[in-house]
Amino acid sequence: MPARHVYKVLFVNQGKVYEIYARSVSQGELFGFLEVEELVFGERTSLVVDPGEERIRAEFEGVRRTYIPLHAVLRVDEVAKQGISKISAAEGGNVAQFPLAGYAPGGDNLKGK
């Protein structure tokens, strides 16, 4: 039986860094978004419950597929085994958001003046 792939996806959302695990990650049909399906969380059968993972599990409860804007994605890794999903504060250092394009609605930016 072939091994199932597990992907670790790191992305920024509202000033926090999310780390989630999923079985399927693709560009998808929605332009500019990463499509993440089959989210994987730790087993609830253990006696020790991680409140951080419970928080992210509650946030994604009932979500079959999520779309993450490409500019928010920090990293996607294929990993050998699943880790613990978590939300952490975006600190300085090596986590930075890509610069956004200087486009304002109305189209004045494209006239070349």
Rank of each mutant, 00 (worst) to 15 (best):
M1N: 11
A3H: 10
A3V: 10
H5W: 14
Y7I: 06
K8F: 01
L10W: 09
G15A: 05
V17L: 07
Y18C: 03
R23S: 09
S24P: 04
V25F: 00
Q27M: 15
E29R: 12
G32D: 00
L34V: 14
L34W: 09
E37K: 13
E37I: 01
V40Y: 14
F41N: 08
T45H: 09
S46I: 06
P51C: 10
G52R: 12
E53L: 02
E54F: 02
I56M: 05
R57C: 08
R57M: 08
E59D: 03
F60Y: 08
E61T: 03
E61C: 05
R65V: 04
R65I: 04
H71L: 15
V76R: 05
V76M: 02
D77P: 04
E78S: 14
E78K: 15
E78Y: 15
A80L: 15
K81H: 14
G83M: 11
I84Q: 15
S85V: 09
A89Y: 11
A89E: 15
E91W: 04
E91S: 15
E91N: 13
G92M: 13
G92R: 13
G92Y: 09
N94S: 15
N94A: 14
V95D: 05
A96K: 12
A96Y: 06
F98M: 15
Y103G: 08
A104H: 14
A104R: 14
G106K: 02
D108C: 00
D108I: 00
L110F: 01
L110P: 00
G112L: 00
